[in-house]
Design a protein around this nucleic acid. Structure first.
Length: 500
DNA sequence: ATTAGGG
DNA sequence: CCCTAAT
């Protein structure tokens, strides 16, 4: 039990810190999003701790799950707060802690971060789910509600207990309160929290998304035995994690972070991105998890109109990825962009998920699969506008889609050419791999691509391929002759622009 | 601001 | 996809 006391203390410290941070956080927001990095890094810690607490606190497994969702959302909020000040970590006053707690709760409500929180929650859902799942299993095995019961739910927060039970229906404020109180009361919970925090704390400095694992591990340990051993383990993990974290910052990432204008939004976005990444690694498989996630989303929605905004932003972020699109960014209907294409429209989220699932390793930042319709459109556009006019094509055909920058179009075209075997493939008898290509392109499409390819060779290697259909002009040299004779063997008429 | 080319 | 150089 000595340990418990110790943990308790730690918890208290944490709480104080948290509260304080919140205040500062607000100011920070006003000033600028400078803290973003911190936020990113910290949030998880908070989140984790909360999660753990919740799970423990939850008497019923089912409840635990629900709570998790909430925890996630609220956790983010906390984290956001924490971002503000890292410096003043320790405070001895437990009393203080209590007061702070209360104040904290109130503040939480006020905090405008709620929106952000929700958005974040959405992003991290997967992660939470995963954690949750494991946790549940663990809990079910050994002892579940024993300590939970003792962990006084009432504590200082008023009406929290009730809300806590009704996980789903709770408002964010209540949610926050609950975890806090429980955490404080429950010795075990506390211990866990402390451990987590301690571990994470050290790495707080840098922002890293790899904490999911850590959190999981930690929780596991906690469940099994809340002894020194667990503590040690936790610490260890924390250390490991920290190392991981350090190497994180990518150029783009930094860029985003450093971006000036939308503080909250920006942070949100970034956070989201990070969360997404993590998620990809995790992979949520169980239907249960899915359900939970769904529910969480729903809740968010119902809770406040504001949520919608956050969600939107999320979608937007995903859609437009890092790149700033002129029109899209401006005011384009965030959801609209995707809907432009039939296949895409059906599943905005789904699409994203699929993508993630398919490639666990975050290859590039993010990439969107090209749908058939998109490709067709692209080909049409090329036919209509000519090869070089990527921006025009983009405007005419892909204006609706926020992603797909002109260069993307060009790249895609390049890829298409390669795939169609127009380039140099024809030279050899080898048909290349278009056949067994991952995404079978419809023959018709391929044909068109080929045609176009003949017409205007993208890469400067135009000489080699004319052989197959090269009719009139062996080489399309720049000059007066070039304008008219675009129609090659294919009946299709393609009008190309003369480049002066 | 766009485009081409390479990674 | 992302980045850089050239226009």
């Amino acid at each position: 039990m000595d340990k418990q006391a110790h943990f308790h203390k730690k918890v208290a410290n944490m709480k104080c810190q948290r509260v304080k941070k919140e205040e500062s956080f607000v100011s920070a927001l006003e000033d600028e999003a400078i803290e973003v990095e911190n936020l990113l890094a910290e949030p998880k810690n908070e989140h984790v701790s909360v999660d753990g607490v919740l799970s423990f606190g939850g008497e019923n497994l089912g409840k635990g799950l629900q709570m998790d969702d909430f925890a996630c959302g609220f956790g983010y909020g906390l984290r956001t707060n924490s971002g503000g000040l890292d410096s003043n970590t320790t405070q001895e006053g437990e009393d203080l802690q209590l007061e702070v707690l209360d104040g904290f709760l109130d503040e939480v409500e006020e905090v405008d971060d709620l929106e952000a929180t929700h958005g974040l929650s959405n992003a991290c859902e997967d992660f939470l789910l995963d954690i949750e799942f494991e946790k549940v299993e663990l809990i079910s095995g050994p002892h579940v509600g024993s300590y939970v019961g003792n962990s006084s739910s009432e504590s200082q927060s008023p009406g929290l207990s009730g809300s806590s039970n009704g996980a789903v229906g709770i408002s964010e404020s209540s949610t926050v309160t609950i975890p806090a109180s429980e955490c404080k009361n429950g010795a075990i919970n506390k211990a866990l929290t402390c451990e987590l925090h301690g571990g994470f704390r050290s790495k707080c400095g840098c922002q890293t998304p790899a904490e999911d694992l850590a959190s999981l591990e930690l929780r596991k340990f906690d469940d099994f035995d809340n002894d020194d051993k667990s503590f040690l383990e936790a610490s260890k993990i924390g250390g490991v994690l920290r190392e991981k974290r350090l190497r994180k910052p990518t150029r783009r990432y930094i860029e985003e972070v450093s971006n000036k204008k939308p503080k909250c939004l920006k942070g949100r976005e970034k956070y989201l991105a990070a969360a997404t990444k993590d998620t990809s690694m995790k992979v949520r498989s169980h239907s249960e998890l899915h359900n939970v996630r769904r529910r969480a989303l729903t809740v968010v929605h119902g809770e406040k109109p504001l949520r919608v905004t956050s969600i939107q932003s999320v979608s937007e972020v995903r859609a437009r990825r890092g790149r700033p699109k002129k029109q899209a960014t401006k005011q384009a209907p965030i959801l609209a962009p995707e809907s432009d294409e039939e296949p895409l429209s059906s599943d905005s989220e789904d699409d994203r998920v699929t993508k993630k699932k398919s490639k666990k390793h975050d290859r590039r930042k993010h990439q969107r699969m090209w749908t058939l319709s998109e490709v067709m459109k692209l080909v049409d556009g090329i036919s209509d506008h000519g090869i070089g006019r990527w921006t025009d094509i983009k405007r005419n055909l892909f204006s609706a889609s926020a992603y797909r920058t002109p260069i993307d179009l060009r790249d895609k075209w390049r890829n298409l050419l390669r795939a169609s075997g127009a380039q140099k493939a024809s030279k050899k008898g080898v048909e290349q791999k278009q056949e067994h290509a991952l995404r079978p392109l419809p023959t018709s499409l391929l044909k068109r691509v080929r045609e176009l390819a003949k017409i205007h060779p993208y890469p400067r290697v135009r000489m080699s391929k004319k052989s197959s259909l090269g009719q009139v002009a062996p080489l399309m040299l720049p000059g007066p002759s070039k304008g008219a004779p675009s129609n090659l063997g294919g009946g299709r008429t393609v009008r190309r622009k003369n480049c002066t």
